[in-house]
Design a protein around this nucleic acid. Structure first.
Lengths: 218, 218
DNA sequence: TCACCCCAGTATACGGTGTAGACCAGTCTA
DNA sequence: TAGACTGGTCTACACCGTATACTGGGGTGA
C-alpha cells in the first residue's frame, strides 16, 4: 500500500477525537479507534501509515476546531480569543497535546492560526523582525501551559507541597521559606492562564513601544 | 512491599538516563532499564512503585546536574545561568525532555532549582503573590522552548516555508504576506533563547515596578 | 546446631500495545 | 471471462507495565 486512501480519513479522525474525548489519554489506541469506526484495526493503516501520522492529522483537525475570531476585535482580544479557543479545544482532547508541542504546524488549519497571531502582533506594533519570535514564544507558552496543567506537572506529584518541602532543611530553601503560605494556596488555573496571557500581551506592547520610542529601552 | 528500598535507586536512575540517552525515550522501558542494571524487570519495583515514579526521579537527577550558580550573581544572571544550564543538560539527554514538561518537580533537586528561581524573582521585586505564577511561566517557557527546538517543532516540517505558504492563497494569509522575507531567514536558536530570556526578565522587572509604583500599571 | 524469618531478586503470566504479512471477497475494466 | 485493483480481515510478533507467587541465602534467637 504505497499510496494512502483518502475517503474515510475524516471519519477516522472523528473517531480518534471521540475516543480521546471520552475514554481518556491512554485509551487512544488503534484498536479503540478502529472499533469506533466499526472496522478492523489494520484497516486504519490504509489511511494512515502510523499512529503518529493519525495523531498529526488529529492535531490539524483540532486547530481547525478553534472558532474563527469575530471581526473587529483588537489585537489583545484576538490573541485572547485564540488562546482560550486552543485551551478549550485542548481540554476536550488532552491526549493529542504533546503532539502539538513537538511537531511543526504544517496543516492549513495550523498555518491559519499562526497567521492570526502574526496579524495581532503586527497590529500591536511589534517590529517585523521580532514577530516570528514572539509568535513562537506565545505559542510555546500557551501550549506548554495547557500541557503542564493537564498532564499534572503543575500538580503536587506524589507528595503534597508542605510534605515535599519538609524533605529539605528549611534554611536551604530560603525562597520557599520567604513565600511561605503563598505556596500552599490552591491555584485557579483559569486565572493563571489569563494572567499569563495578559503578561504576554504587555510584553508585546512593550516591544512595540521600545521600537517607536527607542530611548525608552532599558 | 509497602516500604521502598533505597540502596540501588541512584544506580537505577543512572541506568534509565543511559538508556534514554542512547536508545531514545521510546526505548526507556522497565525491561531495558533492568537489563542495564543487570537485574530482572520486577526487581525495579522494589525501588519504584511504578514507571512514573522512576521517571519523576529521573527528572530530579537531571535537574541536579545543572551546575549551581556561582555566588554574587544578580537576579537576571541567576535566571540566565539556570536557563542555560537547563538547556545544556537537556542537550545531553534530549529524550527525557518531554518528561520535564509533564511530571511535577518533586525531587529535592527539582525543588532546589525552583527555589533558585523564587529567590531571583524575589530579588527582582516581584510581589510575593505572583512569584509562584511567574516561576511556572518561566519554567514552562524555558522547557517548552528547548523541547520545541530539539524536537523540530520550530523546524519547517515536511515543507519549507515558501512552499508551505503556497498551499494557501496569499491573500488569506495577510500576516505571512506582510512579513514576507522575514519569515524565510534562518533563525539562530541561541539568540532566540537569549532574547526570550531577556524578555521574561523584563517582564519580571515590569511586574516589580508596577508593584512599587501602582499607578504606572496598564 | 537448628529453626525461623526476612529480604532481594526471580519466574511466570495477564491483558494490553503498534504493526507486518498473507489472504480474501467483491467490483471494475480490458 | 480473466485479470487487476480495492478495501478489509485474520493471524502473528515483539514488546509493554505490572500483579502474583515463589526461591535461595543470610541473620538471629533458642
Amino acid at each position: 500500500m504505497r499510496k494512502l486512501k483518502e475517503s474515510r480519513r475524516p471519519e477516522i479522525i472523528d473517531a480518534a477525537l471521540a475516543v480521546a474525548a471520552d475514554r481518556g489519554l491512554d485509551a487512544l489506541s488503534m484498536r479503540a479507534v478502529a472499533q469506533r469506526v466499526g472496522v478492523t484495526p489494520m484497516a486504519l493503516y490504509g489511511y494512515f501509515r502510523t499512529k503518529d501520522e493519525l495523531l498529526e492529522a488529529v492535531v490539524g483537525r483540532l486547530l481547525e476546531e478553534i472558532p474563527p475570531a469575530p471581526p473587529g476585535l483588537g489585537w489583545r482580544e484576538m490573541l485572547q480569543h485564540l488562546a482560550y479557543g486552543l485551551r478549550s479545544v485542548a481540554g476536550r482532547y488532552p491526549a493529542v497535546l504533546p503532539v502539538l508541542l513537538t511537531r511543526p504546524a504544517v496543516s492549513p488549519g495550523a498555518i491559519r492560526v499562526v497567521d492570526v497571531v502574526y496579524r495581532a502582533l503586527l497590529d500591536a506594533g511589534v517590529p517585523h523582525g521580532q514577530v516570528a519570535r514572539l509568535e513562537r514564544m506565545f505559542s510555546t507558552l500557551a501550549i506548554g501551559h495547557i500541557l503542564s496543567e493537564m498532564s499534572g506537572r503543575f500538580g503536587a506529584g506524589t507528595l503534597d507541597p508542605p510534605a515535599r518541602r519538609a524533605q529539605l532543611s528549611p534554611e536551604s530553601l530560603p525562597g520557599h521559606h520567604t513565600l511561605g503560605a503563598h505556596l500552599d494556596q490552591p491555584v485557579d488555573w483559569d486565572d493563571e492562564f489569563t494572567a499569563n496571557l495578559r503578561d504576554m500581551c504587555d510584553l508585546a506592547a512593550a516591544l512595540a513601544a521600545a521600537d517607536t520610542n527607542p530611548q525608552a529601552t532599558h
